[in-house]
Simulated scan of single mutants.
Amino acid sequence: MYRYKGFDSALCGDSMVALEAMVNAWMEEQQPRIRQMCQSMRGEHILLSFVYEDTHQLEQRVAAQKQVGTRSSFSRFFEEEHVDERPTVPRIPATPPPLH
């Protein structure tokens, strides 16, 4: 899920150093996967906008998918009797027969 985070330079007295420190602190703490960034003016102030994915949520989602995928693949081969219901099709040999 994408999220939005905005930083307004008015909140830090229009100090670029303070704005940079706020953005860096957020990035270090949240470690977002930034998808889009925009810088715009709001009157005399700078507005930084980020669209990002929360990496913690992303890691949890990936871990959950791996667990589900592992369980379903193991259950398919070890817990259930697997029957191949595809029609029998003659197979092409891996090596062609010798020519005489």
Rank of each mutant, 00 (worst) to 15 (best):
M1T: 12
Y2A: 07
R3Y: 07
K5T: 00
A10D: 04
L11P: 01
C12L: 02
G13H: 00
D14W: 01
D14P: 00
D14Y: 00
S15W: 06
M16S: 05
L19V: 01
E20S: 08
E20N: 07
N24T: 02
M27S: 03
M27H: 04
E29Y: 02
Q30L: 04
R33G: 03
R35M: 12
Q36I: 05
M37W: 07
M37F: 10
S40R: 15
M41V: 14
R42W: 07
R42S: 11
E44S: 15
E44N: 14
I46G: 01
L47D: 03
L47F: 13
L48A: 05
D54I: 03
T55V: 12
L58A: 14
Q60Y: 09
R61Y: 14
A64H: 13
A64R: 15
Q65M: 14
Q67P: 03
Q67S: 10
V68L: 13
T70W: 08
S73K: 09
S73T: 11
S75P: 04
S75D: 10
F77P: 01
F78A: 11
E80R: 15
E81H: 13
E81Q: 09
D84F: 06
D84Y: 05
E85S: 12
E85I: 10
R86Q: 09
R86Y: 12
R86G: 07
P87F: 04
P87C: 04
R91I: 06
R91G: 04
I92T: 15
I92F: 15
I92D: 05
P93C: 06
P97G: 08
H100M: 08
